[in-house]
C-alpha cells in the first residue's frame, strides 16, 4: 500500500516552543487523570508532616506567627519538590526509559521539554499547596491577612519563574549523571529546607548566610510572602519586600539565561562524552 505523506510544514520557533511545552505536559496530565488516589495521598498526608513541626513549635512555646510560617513553608515545599523531582532529575528517568535520545534529537528546545514536564505536574502541585494552606490554616488556627494582594501575586510569580529557571539549570547537570542522580536529588531536599528557611525566618541564620541563601529563589520569595500575609511578620523579615521583589526579578533573568546557556553546554558535553544514552544503573 502506498504512503503519500507530504513535507513537514515549518513551525516558527515560538510556536514550536509552546507546542512542545503542551505536548510534554500532556503525559503528566493524563497520568493524574488515570489514578486519582494521588489527590488524597499526595495532598492530605503531607499535612501530617508539617503538623510535626507545628507541634514542636507549640511544645516549645513559640509565638503563633511561627505556626503560620510552618504552614506557608509547608505549602511551598510542594513547588520545590516539583522542581526537584518533576523537572531536574526527570532527565535521568527519561534516559532510563530511552526517551532522552528522542528529545535531544527532536528540533524542539530542551527548555520547552523541561517546562512541559514541570507544568504537567503543576495541577497536582498547586492543589497540594492550596490544600495545605487552607486545611493547615484551619487545623492550626492560622490567620492569613493579605496586606497587598497584587504584590503577593507578583512575588509568587517571580519566585516560580526564578525557581523553574533554577530547576532547568540543575536539570542540565542531571544530563551528565547516572545512578547518582536520584541520590543527589534526594540530598537536595533537607539542605534547601534548612537554608531557605522553610520552617523558620531565614533572618535567624545571620545576615551573610541568609544573603547567600537568597540565591535560591524560595528564600526571598518565602520571606516576602510571609511579610505580606502575616501582619506581624515584618519584624521577622530578612529584607524589605521591595528589595526582595527586585532581587527575585534579577534572579529570574540570571536563571533563565543561565538555564539556556547551561543546557546547551551540558548537552554538548554529554554528547562528547557519550553520556546521553548510556545507562549505568
Amino acid at each position: 500500500m502506498a504512503t503519500t505523506v507530504p513535507t513537514l510544514p515549518k513551525a516558527s520557533s515560538w510556536k514550536l516552543f509552546f507546542k512542545t511545552v503542551f505536548a510534554r505536559a500532556y503525559p503528566r496530565i493524563v497520568g493524574q487523570q488515570c489514578e486519582k488516589s494521588w489527590m488524597f495521598f499526595d495532598i492530605f498526608l503531607p499535612i501530617l508532616s508539617i503538623a510535626a513541626y507545628v507541634y514542636v513549635y507549640r511544645a516549645i512555646g513559640a509565638p503563633e506567627e511561627y505556626i503560620g510560617f510552618v504552614v506557608l513553608g509547608g505549602a511551598m515545599t510542594a513547588f520545590w519538590l516539583n522542581v526537584l523531582w518533576s523537572m531536574s532529575s526527570q532527565l535521568y528517568w527519561e534516559k532510563e526509559q530511552g526517551n532522552l535520545a528522542l528529545y535531544i534529537m527532536a528540533p524542539s528546545s530542551m527548555m520547552a521539554i523541561l517546562l512541559g514536564m514541570a507544568l504537567g505536574g503543576m495541577i497536582a502541585t498547586l492543589l497540594r499547596a492550596i490544600v495545605i494552606l487552607f486545611i493547615g490554616g484551619w487545623l492550626f488556627q492560622v490567620r492569613f491577612v493579605v496586606t497587598d494582594f497584587w504584590t503577593l501575586l507578583l512575588v509568587f510569580f517571580l519566585t516560580m519563574t526564578a525557581l523553574y529557571g533554577l530547576g532547568m539549570m540543575s536539570a542540565s547537570l542531571f544530563l551528565l549523571l547516572s545512578r547518582e542522580a536520584w541520590h543527589l536529588a534526594n540530598l537536595a531536599q533537607e539542605p534547601i529546607y534548612l537554608i531557605s528557611g522553610f520552617y523558620f525566618p531565614v533572618k535567624n541564620l545571620g545576615f551573610w548566610l541568609a544573603l547567600s541563601a537568597s540565591l535560591i529563589p524560595l528564600t526571598m520569595g518565602l520571606d516576602a510572602m510571609r511579610q505580606l500575609v502575616f501582619p506581624s511578620a515584618a519584624q521577622f523579615g530578612f529584607l524589605d519586600v521591595r528589595i526582595e521583589v527586585i532581587g527575585l526579578s534579577v534572579l529570574c533573568f540570571i536563571f533563565l539565561l543561565g538555564a539556556r546557556y547551561l543546557l546547551n553546554y551540558m548537552e554538548k558535553l554529554s554528547i562528547q562524552e557519550g553520556r546521553l544514552t548510556e545507562s549505568r544503573r
Binding site: 489514578e35 488516589s37 494521588w38 501530617l48 507541634y55
Partner: peptide, 24 residues
C-alpha cells in the same frame, strides 16, 4: 504505578503519624 504510588503514600502517611507521635 497507582498501586505502587498508593502504597508509598500510605507509608509516608504512617511516617508522618509516627513523626508526630515521636516528636510530640
Amino acid at each position: 504505578r497507582g498501586g505502587s504510588r498508593r502504597s508509598l503514600s500510605i507509608q509516608w502517611g504512617h511516617f508522618s503519624i509516627r513523626g508526630i507521635a515521636s516528636l510530640s
